[in-house]
Deep mutational scan, measured.
Amino acid sequence: SKIRITWGDKTWEWDGDDEEVWKRILEWARNLGDEELWRHVKEWVDK
């Protein structure tokens, strides 16, 4: 399956939905430097 994140007018996609993928997404969000996006992603990961 895919994980799709839409933020503003951008959309990103990742293949898979296991823990490793979420770790990569969390790292990606942090590297993007958008605090609010990172917080949202972290909330999803922690669920």
Rank of each mutant, 00 (worst) to 15 (best):
R4H: 12
T6Q: 10
V21W: 03
K47F: 08
K42A: 14
V21I: 10
G33E: 12
W14P: 00
W14C: 02
E36R: 06
L26R: 05
R30Y: 14
A29I: 04
R4V: 15
R4W: 12
R4A: 11
T11S: 12
N31M: 13
H40K: 12
T11Y: 12
E13D: 05
E20A: 13
K10V: 10
T11W: 10
V21T: 14
L37G: 02
H40R: 11
T11F: 09
W7L: 05
W28P: 00
L26N: 02
E27H: 09
E13H: 04
D46P: 04
W22M: 11
W38S: 11
T11R: 04
V45T: 06
W7R: 03
K10Y: 10
D46E: 14
K23P: 05
W12Q: 06
G8H: 11
N31Q: 10
N31T: 14
E27A: 11
V41D: 00
R30T: 10
K42D: 06
W7H: 04
V45A: 15
D46Y: 03
R30G: 10
W38A: 10
D34K: 02
E43S: 03
E13G: 02
D15P: 06
G33P: 07
E43V: 04
N31R: 11
E43N: 06
K10M: 13
T6A: 04
W44Q: 09
W7Y: 12
W14L: 03
D46V: 03
D34A: 08
K2T: 12
G33H: 08
E13T: 09
V21R: 02
L37N: 01
K10H: 12
S1D: 10
G8L: 08
T11K: 06
D15S: 09
K23R: 10
T11E: 06
S1H: 13
E35C: 04
W28V: 02
I5M: 02
L32R: 10
W44N: 01
E35N: 04
A29P: 00
G8P: 00
K2Y: 12
R24K: 12
E20K: 11
L37C: 03
G16V: 08
G8A: 09
K2M: 12
W22I: 11
T11P: 01
R39C: 04
E20T: 13
G16I: 10
E35S: 08
E36G: 04
G16H: 13
H40Q: 14
E19W: 07
D9G: 12
R39E: 15
T6C: 03
K2A: 10
T6D: 06
L37I: 10
A29K: 00
E43T: 03
N31F: 07
W14D: 01
W12P: 00
T11D: 07
I25Y: 01
E27T: 09
I3F: 05
D17N: 12
A29W: 02
W44P: 00
D46Q: 04
L26A: 07
W28R: 00
L37E: 01
R4M: 13
K2S: 15
R30E: 15
D15N: 11
D17Q: 09
G33V: 05
W44A: 06
E19L: 08
G16K: 13
R4L: 10
V45M: 15
E36C: 03
V41A: 02
L37S: 01
E13L: 04
E27I: 09
K42V: 15
W22Q: 06
S1P: 11
K42G: 07
W22G: 06
R30V: 10
H40L: 13
W7V: 09
K42R: 06
V21G: 03
W7G: 00
V41N: 00
D17E: 10
G33M: 07
W12L: 04
W38P: 01
D15M: 06
D34W: 08
V45S: 14
W14K: 00
V21S: 06
E13R: 01
K23L: 08
W7M: 05
L32F: 15
I3G: 01
V41G: 00
H40W: 15
W44H: 04
W7A: 02
D34V: 09
E13M: 05
I3V: 10
K10Q: 13
W22A: 04
W28E: 02
R30K: 14
H40D: 13
T6I: 12
K42E: 14
N31C: 06
I5C: 02
E19C: 03
V21Y: 01
D46I: 04
I25S: 00
K47A: 15
V41E: 00
I3S: 01
E27W: 07
E36I: 06
D18C: 01
E19G: 11
E36M: 05
D46W: 02
V41S: 00
R4Q: 13
D18K: 06
W12G: 06
W14G: 03
V41K: 00
K23D: 15
D15V: 09
R30L: 13
D17G: 11
D18F: 06
W7N: 01
D46K: 05
K2D: 07
T6F: 07
G16L: 11
T6G: 01
H40T: 13
D9F: 02
K42M: 14
E43H: 05
V21L: 06
R24L: 14
V45K: 09
E43K: 02
N31P: 04
T11H: 08
L37T: 02
W44C: 03
R39D: 14
D9Q: 09
I25G: 01
E20P: 04
W28T: 02
L26Y: 07
K10W: 07
W14I: 04
E20H: 15
E43G: 02
I25E: 00
D9V: 03
E19V: 14
E35W: 05
W12A: 05
E27R: 03
W38T: 12
L26H: 04
E35A: 09
W44M: 13
W38L: 15
V41Y: 02
W22C: 03
K10S: 12
K42N: 15
I25N: 00
A29F: 06
E20N: 12
D46M: 03
A29C: 05
N31S: 12
E13K: 01
D17H: 10
E27L: 11
K10I: 10
W22E: 06
W28H: 03
G8N: 10
D46A: 04
D17C: 04
D18G: 14
W38Q: 11
I5Y: 07
L32D: 08
K47R: 05
W44D: 01
W28Q: 01
R4S: 15
K10E: 14
K42C: 12
K47C: 02
T11C: 12
K23V: 07
D17M: 06
K2L: 13
R24V: 13
W14N: 01
I3R: 01
L26T: 10
D17T: 09
D15K: 06
G8V: 03
D15H: 11
D46L: 03
E13P: 00
W12I: 06
